[in-house]
Design a protein around this nucleic acid. Structure first.
Lengths: 246, 246
DNA sequence: CCTGCATTTGTGTCAGACGCTAAGGGCCAA
DNA sequence: TTGGCCCTTAGCGTCTGACACAAATGCAGG
């Protein structure tokens, strides 16, 4: 009944080249930092023209598997998180995801991040977070700045949890959701205060290495956000006009 | 103290072209399904050669913003989830993430998926899930098949939750983690049974629309997985040799 | 009206060329 | 000897022009 028709990809030369180099990177034959031969040389190696090689390279470049520190050097690189973040963010924007969807996921990612941070953060990291919090205090009332610092605060906590998977997964989501604060703030000025209170309590919990408490306050913090969204009537509205992702 | 140096991107022509078209897509001027002009025409429009246009297009193609249904047609498309999944999976593999990292995140995503599924699934969807479960029963002892069906089972549940953000975020993670079952199974043959039990209970909870129970069983299911990983001594081992991601 | 063929159009790839800049090497001075 | 400067040059970004092949189109014939 279900015929899995998988149209064989055309074997375009440029595609094959990208594929081959990618394979060598994933296989470990090429390691991050390694420098690749020049385009001309690659051309002769693969038996194609430089133009063809270049098209393949553009694809690898877009994939984030290689990059050019300078136009002269072409080296292997490990995909950067922010690149994936942008891509995922763009996808979500184009999918027109709602605040509800973003919030539901954030309700589990941020508490987890806080819990992990409480268990793994160094005193030094907590100090830096405290500094960030001080900046937030100083920015009370300035919406754009507040949003930016809030993003940073949460990202920092996620980093402190020492879980790269969580970092990768939550970043684009948090970015989109927190940015929605811009639409919420006008309806709920008191949230500035509640945000500060929550952040303070999270920091305190981190200091005590109290995972549960950190988790709890993070959850309350995100719940607050939802109440704000409800006040603003944004629950099922689209989180972001795609243009803003750029 | 912190100097935010942002290296001005060189304004390579091919890059500008990709950027410009991308902007028009994100802005909504170009909608998914729209067909773009031929390469030659684009060339004259932007005042560059066809080669240059082509390099830009390769980048957009890799970004998943355009694709060719047939070599003759070039149309705008919304990024496909599986494409993002591959990319994220590749990144995690290259980062050499550990089972612990994957598991920690899965411990919150899968229960959430189950809960949402319980609240949003249609009877029809549950029926399909039941079918999948039957296949799993039939595959007892066959590891590769079991892993495949398990992946499908969880992905299906996530879809039933009607949260695209969660779907996007969890897919690459679940893929890597569940694939690790291959290394665990030999140490813990009893997990086949426990898996089936958990899946049965999740389905039952979905039938009753009981979010809490679905969540609880999902959590127990993933916890089981961790016990298996511990038996196999895999907690902090790298989840996957990058090659397997291809 | 539909079918089959011829035509046309656009892609994938090739070959060759040119300006410009960054990388690398040699030279001079400290 | 070592450090800094200049110069050469290799390599990138872009362009021009071309050709084969396949898909889309138009046309003729049944």
């Amino acid at each position: 009944m279900s015929l899995t028709a998988k149209p064989i990809q055309h074997h375009y030369a440029y595609h094959q080249i990208a594929e081959e180099i990618q394979a060598q990177i994933l296989r470990g034959d090429l390691k991050p930092g390694d420098q690749l031969p020049g385009e001309a040389e690659l051309g002769t190696m693969f038996g194609v023209t430089r133009s063809t090689v270049r098209e393949g390279l553009r694809q690898l470049e877009a994939d984030g598997l290689v990059h050019r520190p300078s136009p002269r050097r072409l080296e292997v690189t490990v995909p950067q998180a922010d690149q994936l973040t942008t891509r995922a963010g763009r996808a979500m924007a184009l999918m027109q995801v709602t605040f509800r969807e973003l919030w539901q996921v954030t309700m589990v990612t941020e508490p987890l991040a806080s819990k992990l941070a409480a268990l793994n953060a160094t005193a030094d990291e907590i100090e830096q977070l405290q500094q960030l919090h001080a900046d937030l205090l100083a920015a009370e009332g300035q919406m754009a700045r507040t949003i930016e610092l809030d993003e940073q605060f949460h990202t920092r906590i996620a980093e402190m949890g020492k879980n790269r998977v969580l970092g990768l997964a939550r970043e684009p989501i948090a970015l989109l959701l927190f940015r929605g604060f811009a639409k919420i703030a006008p309806f709920a000025p008191q949230f500035y205060k509640r945000q500060i209170e929550a952040h303070s309590n999270i920091i305190a919990a981190l200091r005590d290495g109290d995972g549960e408490r950190a988790e709890k306050w993070a959850r309350m913090h995100i719940e607050d956000f939802w109440r704000g969204a409800q006040l603003a009537g944004l629950e099922d509205s689209i989180a972001l006009s795609p243009r803003a992702v750029t």
